[in-house]
Design a protein around this nucleic acid. Structure first.
Lengths: 144, 144
DNA sequence: GTAGTTATTGAGATTCAGTATCAATTGAGA
DNA sequence: TCTCAATTGATACTGAATCTCAATAACTAC
């Protein structure tokens, strides 16, 4: 259950579970995301889906983020990216050259939060961790 | 040297070190940031500094981020925030209610990266970690 | 101090990501 | 099949940030 692929099926099911209608447009968005194997921007997805309006793409992405089917993350410069989410509770490594996103679980991150919990006067309500990398393929292709 | 306050003086010096001119506008921006004790948005800073153009505020913020005098971070919804940087290598906890930013160093974060380094096929070139909290003051004021 | 070069500034236009509006459409339960 | 609320999409809008370019002002050299 930790590595169950977030197939098109799951995403649609997640939307249904949320009491939402399954429209042709939503199917198209989900199918397009399912074809991705790297991070993508909302705008790229929108221009790729000619039959679906821009606003609808953004709305659907938001619904999918809320349903935990995809993740929204950001490059170092703040450029927003989306990535299908296949692992339950995880963080991301993003290749800044090609946009490839890997998910990783690391119990150490949770340990950071626990130790922080003792230090901080307040309630931890969330966190974000992103690691920026240059992936193997990009290292090779660029030079040497 | 780890906890030297990033006073106005330091920020100006950092700009000078970068070979930049010290203009009245840059002084005003730095002075205004120095007065802050919480995170702030670029827009808030801009509207607070009547004598300085919006574009200049943004340009100066960018320079200060590059000079490591301030940090750019983001709320969970992506709202960009800036915060004076007083600790060398650190991460942030941001109160999502009042915008208060605390810096913390946690060696555990570095440990996460080291373990990741072994897992990942590629080169780690950076990371970002933000912890979102509800600070003590906000917990009390809202409804204890 | 003055002059000259060159970085910097600011008003406003522009981009980019994302949201709001609202009439027309359509999914899905009855 | 009917009905009605959810959804869509064209378009206008917001907010963050950048670009343009003529006018201005810092440094440097004299």
């Amino acid at each position: 259950m930790t590595t169950a692929p977030a197939s098109q099926f799951d995403a649609i099911a997640a939307l249904e579970d949320a009491g939402l209608r399954i429209t042709g447009q939503r199917r198209q968005v989900v199918a397009a995301i399912d074809r991705k194997d790297a991070g993508f921007t909302a705008e790229a997805l929108a221009s790729e889906l000619d039959g679906v309006g821009r606003a609808t793409v953004y709305r659907t992405l938001k619904l999918l983020v809320e349903a935990d089917v995809i993740c929204k993350l950001a490059l170092p410069d703040g450029t927003p990216m989306y990535s299908p989410s296949r692992v339950e509770h995880h963080h991301h490594s993003v290749c800044t050259s090609c946009g490839a996103v890997e998910e990783f679980r690391d119990s150490t991150v949770e340990r950071v939060l626990r130790s922080l919990n003792r230090e901080i006067e307040g309630e931890i309500i969330g966190h974000r961790m992103e690691v920026f990398i240059r992936c193997r393929a990009c290292l090779i292709s660029t030079d040497e």
